[in-house]
Design a protein around this nucleic acid. Structure first.
Lengths: 214, 214
DNA sequence: ACGTGTGAAGCATTTCACAGCG
DNA sequence: CGCTGTGAAATGCTTCACACGT
């Protein structure tokens, strides 16, 4: 019994985030040729504690060998399967501004299985280009047609804050099931649609707060 | 007694993040001319619940008037003061790549009181330009001199993942007290230095996980 | 009468400590 | 013997329900 199909038990969001971290760590261990690691090894490397790590794994099954540790390669497979990134996810980027280009410019998404297969943009002059880095560019109106056609599951909102809500609505209408919102806007989505917000101003404010109180 | 100097009591990180959200909400209320709001008004607008909001405020003092609600303008001041963003913070951007430019291209940092007053970049050809959008560009080596000189408190790491740790070390050596790390790298900082990580791949993985389990 | 402020209850997550197994 | 896996304890956060002040 190595991998337990995910239970009805609620898994903490924090656990999911940490699993992503562990996965990254393992990349490092793999590169340095380590075959087996213990929970303390991982903890040291990514700044959590060993008990936490074991508990996190336990939600999904038994990934290790008692008295020995975890086989790096197996463990990575198990984590990826647990997270659902043992396959590729089809994404659309909405907004070809500074931030959008920045996202395209990094390989960190592709490397983790998130493929951007369409870009939607309001500005007709940009859309005129037809494609960017081999990814087709469409006007916003095409969303409802293109998204089902390409089987896009996740939408990434990188437009200006004032159009974010409209874009989110269009995305869900078009059949997207998950949304990553980069604008500092509170978006509401129908139940069943997964929404996550990325907002670095909030993190900066968190830093400011802590600096302000010693 | 309106504002209680922040106590020795530990304030949840989640509370701090929500305060940032509330602050944004209030912007909206201000624009629409609303003078007084209740905790339920805020809750509706930003998707939390009223009790939570009152509890969050309670860590810092009494911001409202019983039986009435909160005076929008006062409340915003109180929240900003609580967060430590009733003043300006001096930041340095390290790395003038895609992501760095994206950060400079948005006004959302400036608008919230985070001023980028120096850019550090490895590539000599870029540094040659001398400045970008009026912000001076320096080679990495100048960090130790420039950061204290300009009184920079927060460093923003937007370099490639493999140099992130080195950069973080340089920043802390130079006297920075807070770091916002945009690379998918686990960084360790000495005690007293505040570190936050922004990693959208993790959020995408969170979406993937949830989609994968209905 | 109304909506805030707050102790107490309820829930969720983390940490502990040890049993279990290679 | 060592390190995982796991109930139980401890901690932390959120929600409830009502007292309080205007």
């Amino acid at each position: 019994m190595a991998f337990k199909k995910v239970s009805r038990i609620k898994i903490p969001d924090a656990t999911i985030r940490r699993l992503s971290l562990y996965d990254r760590c393992l990349e490092g261990f793999l590169k340095s040729g380590k075959k087996v690691v213990s929970s303390s090894d991982i903890a040291r490397k990514c700044g959590t504690n060993p008990a936490q790590i074991r508990k996190d794994f336990a939600y999904f099954g038994e990934f290790g060998v008692r008295g020995v540790g975890y086989y790096v390669e197996n463990l990575q497979g198990d984590i990826k399967r647990a997270l659902g990134i043992d396959r590729s996810w089809n994404c659309a980027l909405v907004g070809a501004g500074n931030l959008g280009f920045a996202l395209l410019g990094t390989d960190s998404l592709a490397k983790r299985g998130f493929k951007i297969s369409a870009i939607f943009e309001r500005d007709p002059i940009l859309v005129e280009m037809g494609s960017f880095q081999g990814i087709p560019l469409y006007p916003m109106e095409e969303m409802v047609r293109v998204i089902p056609e390409l089987g896009i599951q996740i939408g990434i909102i990188a437009v200006s804050p004032d159009s974010a809500i409209k874009v989110a609505l269009k995305l869900t209408d078009a059949g997207v099931r998950g949304i990553l919102n980069f604008t500092p806007t509170t978006i509401k989505v129908p139940p069943g649609i997964i929404l996550k917000n990325v907002d670095f101003a909030i993190d900066l404010e968190g830093i400011a707060f802590q600096l302000n109180n010693e």
